[in-house]
Simulated assay, not measured.
Amino acid sequence: MFPKLTPVTKNIIILNVIIYVIANFIYPNLYPLLQAYFPLSPNFKSWQIITHMFMHAPLGEGYGIMHILFNMMTLWSFGPVLEQIIGEKKYIILYFLSGLGGFVLFNLWNYYEIHQLIQSLTSEGINVAEIFQKANIHYSGSMSISAKTPLAVEQSQQLYNELVSPMLGASAAIMGVVAGFATLFPDAKLYMMFIPIGIKAKYLVIGFVIISFFLQITGKTLGIAHFAHIGGAIVGYIMARNFVKNQYRIN
């Protein structure tokens, strides 16, 4: 089921597991420090652009341990093959740029939604700077908001939630790896749990991207950053195509 682990893939999996154990059993304060917040949130730190790729849902919350288990199993399934084909250096570049692509696309969508909320709240006479202040995870003052209409109350809560809700996980980077694999081996048949027939890799990735786009646009996200997955897949596809195109270039 799983190919032999290659050096880079093995080290990425080990690092993810080590950080998960430390964050859940030794130093839980790693979560607010290393998971990524919206770049304009008072909780955002520049290093989170990278570190969020090594954080996964805490035990007993959200998807819990299944989050890291599914991600690492997927990486183990596709990573070694791609790593051997394109080489360790290009594989590392593809992995992290896919993760960054996911971060950028997800937060571009967040920016659109937050901008709409800010405009609406401002027209309601709400001081949005007050909401940004209260969204700081270290804030300890009053949480009351000067909203007088049901709409303003609802949108104030929505803005607050956007500013305190973190993004975490290696899913975007791993989707880049899966998309890279599908680009190099588009007709490879993949077998998934509960599906008795093989699905070509190219159709699986295309279908996943379409479904993710639909779920994000309709708001049926279930706590999943679907646009991050799409961003990772796009970057992985572009980079894998570029690697193939330049494979036999003579310098």
Rank of each mutant, 00 (worst) to 15 (best):
A147L: 12
P58A: 05
S165H: 08
F2R: 11
M167Y: 08
G236D: 09
P3M: 01
L159I: 12
A147T: 13
L33T: 14
N246V: 02
A188C: 01
G102Y: 00
I50H: 06
L82C: 02
G79D: 06
V178A: 02
T149E: 10
P28T: 01
T218M: 07
L163R: 11
I197N: 06
T6N: 02
V244K: 13
L168A: 13
N251P: 14
K90H: 02
I126S: 10
E113H: 06
A188L: 01
I206D: 07
V205M: 06
L82Q: 03
K90G: 00
T6C: 00
H226M: 09
P28W: 03
F213M: 11
V17Y: 06
N24V: 01
G198Q: 04
L33G: 04
M72F: 07
F214M: 10
K45H: 15
G223L: 13
Q157E: 09
N107W: 04
N43A: 06
Y37E: 08
L59S: 04
G176A: 00
V81P: 00
Y248Q: 14
P7I: 00
V81I: 09
I68E: 07
E88G: 01
A172F: 05
G176M: 01
F214S: 05
I210D: 05
Y111L: 14
V244P: 00
F96S: 05
G99H: 02
S146A: 14
A225W: 14
I85Y: 07
E162V: 03
F44T: 08
M72P: 05
L15R: 09
F38S: 07
Q158I: 14
N246S: 10
N11D: 10
N127Y: 04
T221M: 11
F70W: 13
T51R: 09
T9Y: 06
